[in-house]
Simulated assay, not measured.
Amino acid sequence: MSKLSIRDLELKDARAFIRVDFNVPLKNGVIGDDTRIRSSLPTIRYALEHGATVILASHLGRPKGKPNPEYSLRPVATRLSEILGTKVVFADACIGSPAARAVREAQEGERVVLLENLRFHAGEEKNDPDFAKALAALADLYVNDAFGAAHRAHASVEAITRFVSRAAAGLLMEQELRYLGQALESPERPFVAILGGAKVSDKLGAIQNLLGKVDRLLIGGAMAYTFFKSRRLPVGRSLVEDDKLDAARDIEAAAAARGMRIELPVDHVVAERVEAGSATEVLLVGDPRIGERLGL
Rank of each mutant, 00 (worst) to 15 (best):
P187R: 02
T161C: 09
S201V: 02
A247P: 00
F17Y: 15
S81C: 05
G205I: 03
Y225D: 07
S186W: 12
D13M: 06
V285T: 13
E70I: 07
A247L: 09
L115W: 11
M1I: 05
A153H: 10
K87T: 14
S97L: 12
S186L: 13
K213T: 04
H59W: 06
N117F: 01
R231P: 01
S230I: 14
P42G: 07
E125N: 06
E252G: 00
C94E: 05
A193M: 04
Y142L: 14
Q107K: 15
S5L: 11
N127P: 00
I290N: 04
P67Q: 05
N127K: 05
E263G: 00
L26P: 00
D250M: 08
I95Y: 09
I18T: 06
V112E: 07
R293D: 01
L135N: 09
M173H: 09
R111T: 04
T35M: 05
R7L: 14
S238P: 02
D242E: 15
G181C: 02
A100D: 13
E49C: 01
P63K: 05
A122N: 01
Q208I: 00
G236S: 13
Q107W: 04
V285H: 13
K199M: 02
V24E: 05
S165I: 09
A93T: 00
H268K: 08
A47R: 08
D243T: 11
P75M: 12
R15Y: 15
I37F: 04
F120C: 03
P67H: 03
A77Y: 11
E176T: 07
G181K: 08
P42Q: 08
K203G: 04
L217T: 01
G61I: 03
